[in-house]
């Protein structure tokens, strides 16, 4: 990096702070930016600043949004009586992409991780309870990841909702569509047998 002028060195150093970007990739990206049109570079810089300036958490579901309330919570055609609880906004985006769900969401922004010191106080569970206590909720779908952290979070939410007279469901676990059973891991296969369904 010694051979580069100071502003390029600075750009490489900033880019290499991004996840998955090492010094070599950062140098390649910096060279690409140098060669790009002024207009494109300006758009890139503006979009980065815009994201930081304009994006906040939805007042209702804590999804990332530009307005006070996100477009999903705002959409009256969706079933406002169902909340799907997810760990992160990208999980919500994945469910939305599937096109099979038409209720609302609640984003926890994490999962219980005792070994990392992430407890209930670090998750947006109080906001979820406030929504539920506000009335009108008939079902809560827990869509946290099917790993130790996600399962522990699901168990905690189930305990918190005990006695609330709300249907609580957990997303299914099992073999993926189009998959080949001989390549499915042991744990997933045993879960798929445990949660088999009648036809």
């Amino acid at each position: 990096m010694k051979a580069y002028a100071q502003p390029i060195k600075r750009l490489i150093s900033e880019l290499s702070k991004l996840p998955g970007i090492g010094e070599k990739t950062a140098t390649r990206l910096a060279n690409h930016i140098l060669k790009a049109q002024d207009e494109d570079v300006r758009k890139l810089a503006e979009s980065i600043i815009d994201v930081k300036k304009k994006i906040k958490l939805c007042r209702t579901c804590l999804n990332l949004t530009e307005a006070d309330v996100c477009h999903i919570c705002h959409d009256k055609s969706r079933d406002q009586g169902i909340i799907c609880v997810v760990e992160e906004p990208d999980a919500m985006a994945a469910i939305e992409e599937s096109g099979g769900y038409h209720g609302t969401y609640h984003v926890l922004h994490g999962a219980l991780a005792p070994l990392d010191g992430v407890g209930p106080e670090n998750l947006h569970l109080n906001e979820l309870m406030k929504r539920i206590n506000g009335g009108g909720i008939k079902e809560v779908i827990i869509a946290t990841n099917p790993d130790v952290h996600g399962e522990a979070t699901a168990l905690l939410i189930i305990k918190m909702l005990k006695g609330k007279n709300i249907k609580v469901t957990r997303i299914a676990t099992g073999v993926p569509m189009g998959g080949d059973l001989k390549y499915v891991d042991k744990m997933t296969l045993s879960k798929s047998l445990e949660f088999r369904r009648g036809m």
Binding site: P114, D116, G117, G119, P120
Partner: peptide
């Protein structure tokens, strides 16, 4: 110990 702190946080919630 981090996990002990988390365990206590959850116990303080007094869940059933």
């Amino acid at each position: 110990i981090k996990s002990m702190k988390v365990m206590e946080q959850i116990r303080r919630m007094g869940l059933p």
